[in-house]
Amino acid sequence: MDIKLYAQADFYYAVSQQIIERLAAKGLITEAQRVKIDELNREKIYETYPSIAELEVSA
Rank of each mutant, 00 (worst) to 15 (best):
M1R: 15
K4F: 04
L5E: 12
Y6R: 11
Y6V: 06
A7R: 06
A7P: 03
A7I: 02
Q8T: 13
Q8I: 09
Q8K: 12
A9I: 08
D10E: 05
Y13A: 09
A14V: 03
A14S: 11
V15W: 06
V15F: 04
S16Q: 06
S16F: 07
Q17D: 09
Q18E: 10
Q18D: 14
Q18L: 10
I19A: 04
E21P: 06
E21T: 13
R22H: 03
A24F: 06
K26D: 04
K26N: 14
K26S: 09
G27S: 04
G27L: 04
I29C: 01
T30M: 04
E31C: 04
R34Q: 12
R34D: 02
V35H: 03
I37R: 02
D38Y: 02
E39S: 08
L40G: 00
L40C: 00
L40W: 09
N41Y: 01
N41Q: 06
R42V: 10
R42I: 07
E43S: 12
K44T: 15
K44L: 11
I45H: 00
E47Y: 03
E47P: 08
E47R: 15
P50R: 04
S51F: 01
S51W: 02
I52G: 02
A53N: 12
A53H: 09
A53F: 00
E54C: 00
E56G: 02
